[in-house]
Amino acid sequence: MTPQPLTGAQQCAVLMLLLDEGVAALLLRGLAADEVRDVGDAMLSVAEIEPAAIDGVLDIFAARHAEVAALGRDGAQLRTLMHQAFGEPRAGALLGRLPPPVTPVPFATLAWIDPATIAALIEAEHPQVGAVLLAHLPADTGAAVLAALPPELQPGLLVRLSRLGPVSAATLAGLEADLEQALLVHRAARASTARGGTAAAALLMGGVADPARLIEAVRGVDDGLADAIAEQLFVFADLIRIDARGLQAVVREVDTERLVVALKGADAPLRAHILAAMSSRAAAQVEDALMGLGPQKRDDVTAAQAGIAGIVRSLAERGELMLPGSGAGYV
């Protein structure tokens, strides 16, 4: 059976696999983002290949690169890499067929950035800069970037893009340097807003079927951290989701003074929900105390609410209360 001819990506993959890893990595930097992805996939399909096929790939490389400019400044980088990769005789033969280098493609970095990030960069720049950037994007990427921009910015950018004339190489170089700096700032800002901490862990755990199991697993690693996450799993505002019977169990464990201070910072629906679970006499006493209570420090209110939330968690751990969304436990 005649073997199937190798695709362009497979031929490139063969060359990369023949090279030293460091040399191959440097050459890959000269490829576009989609080309790198294609070559990476092709490497898996050419892991085992006949020696004759390898020779054929090298011959094709020499023939086709007679029409392609050398990579790197003045071709020096490519020539050095070729000598390192193939040795003096073969490298000299291959390089002898290469024409002079061409000017690098402006804004090549944009090929590695998702449209949403490019849109964010353009939104922060002057519209004329945005038009220049759009002009150097592939049509499909440019369309995606335009769609990701706020609607009120789109017409102005299209007008400027339509009227855009030739831009000098010096101006493009300056804009490209500014873009690189803006991209660094954008990535740093995104990293600094990454959500973490015990609150984030509790938020994720709140959506699992058995958070208690995870808490105990964390406790095996760090007891204090497990307690901190547990404190975030149920907060005072979650009392709105506990039924009347459950609230009665909670109120029995809470002294009136703490409850009054906690309710001082509760919204009207939560306050009504808790009072409705109490006897009419106890609810009236709490309401009277609330009316006579003066302004409270926010920290005192927060502490009182956190204390009640802790009592709720203790009741749940003892199986005396079913937390909202829990499939186990009872009152």
Rank of each mutant, 00 (worst) to 15 (best):
L6G: 09
M16R: 03
V23N: 11
A33L: 08
V39I: 09
S45T: 15
S45E: 15
A47E: 12
E50I: 13
V57P: 06
L58S: 03
F61Y: 14
A62W: 08
A63T: 14
A66H: 14
Q77C: 05
T80Q: 09
L94S: 04
T103C: 07
A111C: 10
W112N: 14
I113Q: 02
A116I: 12
A116D: 12
T117L: 01
A119N: 10
E125L: 04
H126Y: 04
P127S: 01
V129F: 12
A135T: 11
E152A: 12
L153H: 12
L153V: 13
G156H: 06
L157V: 11
S162A: 15
A170G: 06
A170F: 09
L172P: 01
L175T: 05
L175M: 13
D178E: 12
L183W: 00
V185F: 10
A188K: 01
S192G: 05
A200P: 10
A201Q: 09
L204G: 14
L204Q: 14
L214V: 15
L214G: 03
L214W: 05
I215Q: 00
A217V: 15
R219N: 02
G220K: 03
G224C: 07
A230D: 11
A230H: 05
V254W: 00
L259H: 08
V260P: 03
A262D: 02
A266G: 03
P269T: 03
L270I: 10
S280Q: 15
V286M: 06
A304Y: 11
G307S: 07
V312I: 12
L315D: 07
M322Y: 01
G325Q: 06
G329L: 01
